[in-house]
Amino acid sequence: MDDIEAVLLDMDGTLVDSDGAVERAWRRWAADYRVDPETVLRISPGKTALTTIRQVAPHLDAQAARRAARYQTELQLADAVDTKPLPGATCLLDTLDRLALPWAVVTSADADLAAARLGAAGITPPVLVTADDVRAGKPDPEGYRLAAARLGVPAERCLVVEDAPAGIAAGQRAGARVAALRGHPADLRIPDLHALVALLTPPAAG
C-alpha cells in the first residue's frame, strides 16, 4: 500500500450504517409508485435515486422521474437522524489523519442527505463529492475523478473503498485501486474497515 497517496470512500454501507433507512425509504417509495420493491432493492445500491428510478420506472417522463427522485430522497432525509458510523470507520479516519493520507467521501446521495447522514455519524470529510457535483452517477467514474482532482492526487494513486458493484466499477473506471466490502470482487477484498486499517498501518519497528 506504499504507493497509495489518498483514500476515496463511499458513504452508505461503507462509512455509515444506513441500510435500514435506505430499505425503508425504497419500500415506501415502491409501494407509492407500484413498483416491485425487491427489484428496486436489488439494483439501487451505489446508484443515485434518479438512476434507479429511470431503470425501474421507465414509463415516467423526465420531469416525473426527477419528482419521484426528490420524493425518495425526502423519505431518506426524514430517516437520517439515527445514522451511525460503521465498525472501524472512526478508527480508519483517525488513522488516515495520523498518516497524513488525504481522504474524501464520494456518495450517490445529494448534498442535503449526505450532510444529514455524515453529521449524524459525526464525520466531517475534508472533501465531499455528492450527486449534486456530477453529471453522471456511479458506475460512471466522474465522482471519483473529481474527488481525486480536488485532493490534488492522480486517481491512479488513490484507493477507493466501496461496498456496491456500481461504486466498485466507478473506482475501477477512474483508474484507482479498489478495496471492496461485502465480498464483492475487486483489487482487495476486506471483511471490514478494521482490516483496511491494518493494511494501511506500517508494522511496528523491532
Rank of each mutant, 00 (worst) to 15 (best):
P37K: 11
A57T: 04
L77Y: 08
G46H: 01
I43K: 02
G13Y: 04
T73F: 07
G13P: 02
Q72N: 12
R70G: 03
A69M: 06
W29Y: 10
R66S: 02
D32M: 01
T73G: 14
V16F: 01
H59R: 14
A65E: 08
D10I: 09
R34L: 01
D32L: 14
D36Y: 11
R42A: 09
I43F: 06
T39Q: 15
A25D: 12
L60E: 03
D36L: 14
Q63C: 11
A62V: 03
I43H: 12
T51G: 01
R24N: 10
Q72R: 11
A21H: 01
T48F: 07
K84A: 05
D19C: 00
L15E: 00
R67E: 15
L50E: 15
D12K: 00
D10C: 05
L77G: 10
P45H: 13
A65T: 05
E38N: 07
V56L: 07
I43D: 00
V81Y: 14
A69H: 05
L15C: 01
R54V: 03
R66G: 00
V81D: 14
R27Q: 15
R54S: 03
M11S: 13
G46W: 14
R42H: 10
G20A: 10
A69R: 03
V16T: 06
K84W: 00
E38G: 11
T51P: 00
P45Y: 06
K84V: 09
A57W: 12
T52K: 09
A64E: 12
A57D: 02
T51H: 06
P58A: 03
R54L: 06
A25H: 10
D36M: 13
R70A: 05
V40C: 06
K84S: 08
T52E: 10
P45L: 04
H59N: 12
R66F: 05
V40P: 02
A62D: 13
Q76S: 12
P58I: 01
K84R: 13
A21F: 03
A21Y: 02
P58K: 05
H59G: 06
T39N: 04
L75D: 07
A25S: 13
T48N: 12
K84Q: 12
D82I: 05
R66P: 06
E38H: 05
A64V: 03
R24C: 03
A69F: 11
R28L: 14
P45S: 05
D36K: 14
V40M: 06
Y33M: 13
L50D: 01
S18P: 09
D17V: 05
R34I: 02
E74V: 01
R70W: 00
Q55A: 09
T48S: 14
W29I: 00
A80D: 04
R66L: 03
G20N: 00
T39D: 05
Q76H: 09
V40Y: 00
A49H: 14
A78P: 15
D12S: 15
A25T: 11
L50R: 06
D32K: 04
I43N: 10
T39V: 10
R28K: 13
